[in-house]
Design a protein around this nucleic acid. Structure first.
Length: 280
DNA sequence: AAACAAACCTGTGCGC
DNA sequence: TGCGCACAGGTTTGTT
């Protein structure tokens, strides 16, 4: 579910609501959520610790603790973080509950029906060993800043379909299925175009499109689809879905040219929507 | 090197 | 109404 803009929205919520608070007590239900280590490791790593910051790299949330360790949360497909008043009824699939210090008494919940998401406390000094996936993450267009030259090198350095390349977290971190399709449409590039065939002008368009789509989506608080799965820390949905021009619009008229219908293909193992007239 | 399929799970929507 | 199948914001692993 959540891609860079949704994770960034959650991060901002954590910054306002959770940073500076101490975790008094931790309950871990489903062990699968903490499969990288164990229930005990998460409880021991968080209990008594104060969250000192909320950072993001790609789709990874990274919260440094005053113990020197760091909490990593990845929402994967269906994970949600929610702040709620203590004692509020917990929704189904609430796998981790963190009791926070301060008034009013509140809890930070990790909810995840599909259980692909995960939480882990790790020592940042051992990043390469404990978190190899995180260590190999590519450039984050927002936090690292992605220059045109950088993107040019990424594209020219390989011979891959744009869809697969942009979604590869080891290359560009944070772009998922929605924002990939939306960026390619804005850039007027087909998802199956081969990366090293782009002209300088096209590279420029793609660079502008990725940054503009991600920035606008962050401003809109991300995309909340019909299933309302994604909500921010306070349970509020985002609004970027009203700006989607191709995602989930197969068979409908292209909003840009008004002449062709949006087409759906499978690319990089994912449902991919584009306008065959606008995108070349 | 890159494309593809399957795996991990649960829930929902659709056709019959 | 109910059943079975396809599919879903992600990532890893193994195979061509």
């Amino acid at each position: 579910m959540p891609e860079l803009p949704e994770v960034e929205t959650v991060r901002r919520g954590l910054e306002v609501q959770v940073v500076g608070r101490r975790i008094e007590r931790v309950e871990v239900g489903r062990e699968r959520t903490v499969r990288r280590t164990s229930r005990q490791a998460l409880v021991d790593g968080l209990t008594g610790a104060t969250i000192t910051a909320a950072n993001r790299r790609g789709k990874y949330l990274l919260c440094p603790l005053d113990t020197g360790d760091e909490l990593m949360v990845h929402l994967r497909m269906s994970g949600r973080l929610l702040v709620a008043d203590a004692g509020t009824a917990r929704p189904p699939h609430t796998h981790v509950v963190m009791h926070l210090s301060g008034a009013p008494a509140q809890e930070l919940w990790f909810i995840d029906p599909r259980t692909f998401g995960e939480m882990v406390v790790f020592d940042p000094a051992n990043l390469a060993v404990e978190m190899p996936d995180l260590a190999r993450l590519g450039v984050d267009p927002i936090t690292d800043g992605l220059t045109k030259a950088q993107l040019g090198n990424i594209l020219r350095g390989r011979r891959r379909q744009l869809k697969a390349l942009l979604m590869d977290q080891h290359v560009v971190a944070g772009v998922g299925n929605i924002y990939c399709d939306e960026s390619l449409h804005l850039a007027k590039l087909r998802p199956d175009r081969i990366s090293d065939t782009l002209t300088t002008r096209e590279i420029g368009r793609l660079h502008d499109a990725v940054l503009s789509v991600l920035s606008l989506a962050i401003e809109a608080g991300g995309s909340t689809l019909a299933d309302t799965q994604y909500v921010d820390l306070e349970g509020q949905g985002g609004w970027f879905q009203v700006h989607h021009r191709v995602y989930d619009r197969a068979g409908q008229r292209c909003l840009t040219c008004g002449k062709a219908d949006i087409v759906r293909i499978m690319s990089a193992g994912r449902s991919t929507c584009f306008c065959p007239r606008c995108q070349r």
